[in-house]
Write a protein that binds this DNA or RNA. Structure first.
Lengths: 149, 149
DNA sequence: TTAATTGCAAAAACTTTGCAATCGG
DNA sequence: CCGATTGCAAAGTTTTTGCAATTAA
């Protein structure tokens, strides 16, 4: 990772203070757990994982509420919406990228194409549209699953 | 629209028969209603609209079940996933395109950039990934909403 | 005839919220 | 101390499903 976790946590504290929110044990624990959980995750997994910790870190409600804060802060984002599932990604310190999603095995491949970003900017200009964020999902079969058919 | 609705309904009938499904009144009525509903819609809207028709067209369950069939058939697709909402689009006879979504007023602008498609194909080749479909959503502010800030 | 489809109501899955107790500043 | 946060359970959303009645082939 580009950014140290301790540094990220400090920035998150800054963010909370600046917004008039409180720096609580749950919030700091959660950003820590999410960072260590792995790149992609779903809320339910996180709730279960967090519930199985020795000491209670946060309840389901708090997880949901903190997820929103972390999105606002910019440490995580919804990257894949597949059927009724929402997959989040820990993006702090990571450059922007898009995803290839294997609909058979669930594998997620990240990629970045500068030209695609540029073309998007051009489209936005054409329509006088001010982009805030975007998401490009390519669903299909990964190499292994395609050859297994 | 490029394709006639009557022709589309015939193709849908073909599709149903081929799959061993039955051609029912509800299914034909629904493809008709959706085609006439307008480009983008959410299921709840459709259920309400369909419920308000003189003669009952289909129940909520049937709407949900038929939506899945129509996706399989290829007449509609999930085009925008925003928060917990899913916006579908009637795509039969329409060329592929992507969307700009105004997060303030909800306006949806369609666009198509051949180069973006080509670049995606190239990425897929690089990763030996077999694409099935994709979705590019650019969230931001439309011209009107941006100037109103 | 008979297997698929429908409508209903119940359940499931996911997310939000009211409120009393607790915690941070 | 005071207002924000938490946990809980209840409620809200959205979607799925079991089953008896109905319908298409």
């Amino acid at each position: 990772m580009v950014m140290e976790l301790s540094e990220l946590k400090k920035e998150f504290e800054q963010f909370l203070k600046q917004k008039g929110y409180k720096v609580t044990k749950s919030r700091l624990e959660l950003i820590d757990k999410i960072a260590k959980y792995g790149s992609h995750f779903e809320i339910e997994q996180l709730v279960v994982w967090v519930s199985n910790q020795d000491k209670s870190v946060a309840s389901r409600s708090t997880v949901y509420r903190t997820i929103k804060l972390l999105q606002e802060f910019g440490a995580i984002r919804e990257v894949i919406k597949l059927g009724n599932r929402t997959i989040y990604e820990f993006i702090a310190g990571k450059p922007h990228h898009e995803h290839l999603i294997c609909v058979k095995c669930g594998k997620i491949i990240e990629f970045y194409k500068e030209e695609i970003e540029e073309l998007q900017d051009r489209v936005c200009e054409e329509y006088n549209f001010t982009p805030i964020n975007h998401r490009l999902e390519i669903f299909g079969l990964c190499k292994e699953c395609a050859s297994a058919v």
